[in-house]
């Protein structure tokens, strides 16, 4: 009796899953600007590939039941299965297994990769080629390089980063909580008054805000009046060009 319904419902499930999995293939993402962005896109697609059949199962069960088990009058009785037998246990094992799998595989393993220091506050390696101190304030960012060169909305007007170099941002804030987010790099961490957070990224492609809006530092934590325009353009260039830019900024200051 179940079989008669199980097969068409399963077919429906497969069809909806197949359509849904198109989302996995589709390119929904902004420019892949860093190694971390590569990881993010991959994990996002992986979770999408797992999530789509789950949601498709719910859709298929509801849609099929609404079609096959509908009743126009209200006085017909359904079957009297109570579901206290083996099926809930199987369900528990399957959902539990799925949860445990997702927990371990992209979750904890991904976390392992992101955190090199268990007691610090931040993402990525603690060692880096370029170290930048980023300070959030209402409503602008200031970036200070290791040699003391400052970049902000008046001076420099854009943040230039070297490609294929590890860049570490040490982040804090002078007033309220901000969040330093670079969509092209898929990385973000809050800027909090009183403690220094950090994130290390490695840009992999050249690009600039003028051509691609995902190359920007964006404040992602509501920080007051002009929160939505608290962003800062980024340009990723080759290392020699970066050195040149940094030097020019220095001479410009003198």
């Amino acid at each position: 009796m179940h079989i008669k319904h199980l097969i068409p419902a399963a077919v429906l499930w497969v069809i909806i899953t197949a359509v849904g999995e198109l989302l996995v293939i589709a390119n929904l993402y902004p420019t892949v600007g860093s190694l971390e962005a590569d990881d993010f896109d991959w994990i996002f697609r992986f979770l999408l590939a797992i999530g789509v059949p789950v949601f498709a199962f719910v859709i298929a069960a509801i849609v099929y039941s609404m079609y096959a088990f509908r009743s126009a009058k209200g006085d017909e009785m359904g079957s009297t299965i109570r579901g206290n037998g083996w099926f809930p246990r199987i369900w528990l094992i399957v959902t539990g297994g799925l949860a445990a799998f997702v927990m371990v595989f992209p979750g904890l393993t991904g976390l392992q990769k992101l955190q090199s220091d268990r007691t610090a506050y931040g993402w990525g390696d603690t060692e880096a080629d370029v170290v930048i101190h980023a300070t959030g304030a209402q409503f602008n960012w200031t970036f200070t390089f290791a040699d003391g060169t400052e970049v902000n909305i008046i001076k420099g007007k854009e943040l230039v980063l070297p490609v294929h170099q590890k860049v570490r941002f040490n982040i804090d804030s002078v007033d309220v909580v901000h969040s330093l987010w670079i969509p092209a790099f898929r990385m973000k961490i809050d800027a909090i008054p009183g403690r220094t957070t950090y994130m290390t990224v490695e840009p992999t492609v050249k690009g600039s805000y003028a051509e691609d809006q995902s190359f920007r530092v964006q404040c992602a934590e509501l920080c007051g009046l002009d929160h939505s325009v608290m962003n800062f353009p980024i340009r990723v260039v080759e290392k020699p060009e970066f050195d040149q830019w940094l030097a020019s900024l220095k001479t410009g200051a003198k």
Binding site: H5, V58, A61, S65, F69, R70, S79, I81
Partner: peptide, 16 residues
């Protein structure tokens, strides 16, 4: 997930 189990199991073979 158990809430889904209960809901989907109830509509299965019912008279909706």
């Amino acid at each position: 997930g158990l809430v889904f189990l209960s809901a989907l199991g109830t509509i299965w073979m019912g008279k909706l």
